[in-house]
Nucleic acid binder design. Structure first.
Lengths: 351, 351
DNA sequence: GTGAAAGCGCTAACAG
DNA sequence: CTGTTAGCGCTTTCAC
């Protein structure tokens, strides 16, 4: 599987040159070196040149840890996400990074994997590291430990979570609105029954989306109990969606539901596959399908998928913004982002 | 789009308690506090309890920067990837992280966006930060600046790149083998002509894959110039793949090629879409398609896609491993990973 | 077992 | 303009 060869010699790990070394070579004092680094306008051109020459000669790179220790400041922000591999979170991370770059700050990323123990490990690590602030997708509803961190002087913002303990800013997405958007669209198309393939209500997002669905149904004067048939999936992937819909079709003598709303796009892809397997293109095109997340591939499918899109990048950007404000002493603040519906062929007649 | 409300008061940013504060509260010296933290077995149980009580009382969190400054050590590794949003790199990042977690090290991530200026900005930032080592996907073939960093005492490993400047370890994927795998498979299926939708040869991976294709053709005693029809795409996404194949079909009186090898899965998805649009399922199922990357969705498509899978997580893991070895003074080392072919319906008759 | 003191590399205050 | 010096918070000798 792998091949390896060994190179020449190992790198000797000698001490990095310090401002003292630079000062010696340039024939000035450490204070002057520091001034060249931080307030060059205070230094005469000739000495500045000498110092810069010495810096080049020694390939001096300043020790940021010592600098920050002395200044008491920090230029890194920690973000603790649920899963670094999930495109949802990488888009968020990119939004964070883009905002931080404006102020020349860097991001330290961690994945909690939704495990509270991993979460607290990373939190301790970040805090010891002296981060300027912390963006956290919490693993539990309990956020007192995060408020405690903020009490100790590290700004904390809840990410992808509604307001928690007092004092913590938060940024999240309106899942109620997302559910309402999807269901409203299907109702508008004239469908009178909606199969909703959802995850367990212990996940806030799932519960909220269901609430949104109900609201949309009520808004048109119908009874959710009659209109909505919710099926709870064991996992939220394509296989689970396919199995659930195959079972539905089998239980209904080979007929497909008129409309299906899926808690995410992968599930929707599974639904499309089940429909195609059960009754080919005819069955597939006779069933309106709406997904959630608007993953990259949604537009590329055989039948392009209607989906609820969430402003993930913006959410990250805003979270970083709130963090910096909070670190600057501003009061806590809460932002909720609204999703939008991207209508494609999968949900409209003749699509 | 967003709504915001303002909360109560802002958090006062008071000084973090130090070992000195803990010592005062516990009625011991700072040395003893340090011992409790680092060598608890040297401290008598009673004083240890007193100190631990004081730590709890003050919610003391040790200042890692000062610690590392004093010790001269570091516990963070920097990784500079091309794009943090790309699933390829997030899988790699996760592999890195998993290896680092074993030694309780943390990862600082950066995205160079393939821009040498961003690259050098991040490199300086990482180096000032005092990282233990650096994993870099280089933006250019030139790696002297990375060797220079290593000269200054920071271990550097090239990621997803073949060996560069002397002294740098490297980890990469065998794209020649990947190209040969895909083409070999198509030849084995009896196809005598292969359309290869590739990217520009200025991208090493594209050039290598072409070389692999040629080798596979030569291996069965055929002439690449006769067998392979390479089309260079302007971009490597589904739209580009669709356009290229639609043009091919139009130029061949509505006929599809017998076999198409695509430089990545997105392009392959575009190809499938073009085939379906041009001639429905019949045309689609009559054309063997092979992609590259084995993205999550490849198995979920209407016609599941045969693809070349690369061990990305393992590559990250190995890169971190080599970095740690190099940081420990071992000699440079080079590892190349072999891809594997995942055969699905898109490339086999009756699929 | 515990305390006192030095020093990691840097910046900031102050003196000249 | 430049040099001297104190000290950020911690670990680490070395005495006691």
């Amino acid at each position: 599987m792998t091949s390896a060869r060994v190179g020449p010699v190992s790198t000797p790990r000698r001490r990095r040159p310090s401002v003292g070394d630079v000062a010696r070579v340039a024939g000035v004092s450490v204070g002057t070196v520091s001034n060249v680094l931080n307030k060059p306008e205070l230094v005469s051109p000739e000495t500045r040149d000498r110092v810069e020459g010495a810096i080049k000669e020694l390939s001096f790179v300043r020790n940021g840890r010592a600098r920050q220790l002395r200044q008491g400041s920090s230029t890194t922000v920690g973000a603790l996400l649920l899963d670094i591999r999930n495109p949802f979170f990488t888009d968020v991370a990119r939004g964070i990074e883009d905002r931080l770059a404006v102020d020349d700050l860097t991001l330290m990323l961690g994945s909690s994997d939704d495990d509270p123990r991993r979460e607290s490990k990373f939190l301790r690590l970040f805090e010891e590291h002296g981060v300027l602030g912390l963006l956290v997708v919490p693993t539990t509803h309990e956020t007192k430990h995060l408020a405690a961190i903020q009490e100790r002087g590290v700004a904390v913002v809840l990410l992808d979570a509604p307001p928690g303990a007092a004092g913590l800013s938060s940024v999240w997405l309106d899942d109620v609105a997302g559910g309402a958007l999807a269901a409203g669209h299907l109702l508008e198309q004239g469908h009178e029954r909606i199969v909703f393939l959802n995850g367990p209500h212990s996940i806030r997002q799932c519960q909220d989306r269901r609430e949104g669905v109900d609201r949309a149904v009520l808004a048109v004067g119908q009874d959710p109990a009659r209109v909505v048939e919710e099926i709870t999936l064991p996992r939220l992937d394509a296989a689970a969606g396919e199995a659930a819909l195959a079972a539905w079709v089998a239980a209904h003598g080979g007929a497909a539901p008129a409309a299906v709303f899926c808690v995410n796009d992968l599930v929707a892809i599974g639904v499309q596959r089940a429909l195609r397997r059960a009754g080919g293109f005819a069955l597939l095109s006779g069933c309106a399908v709406v997904g959630y997340d608007d993953i990259d591939i949604a537009a590329e499918l055989a039948v392009p998928l209607t989906s609820v899109r969430q402003p993930r990048h913006e959410m990250g950007h805003e979270a970083a913004e709130l963090l910096l404000r909070q670190a600057a002493g501003e009061a806590e603040q809460h932002t909720v982002f609204q999703p939008e519906l991207v209508v494609r062929a999968s949900s409209v007649p003749g699509g």
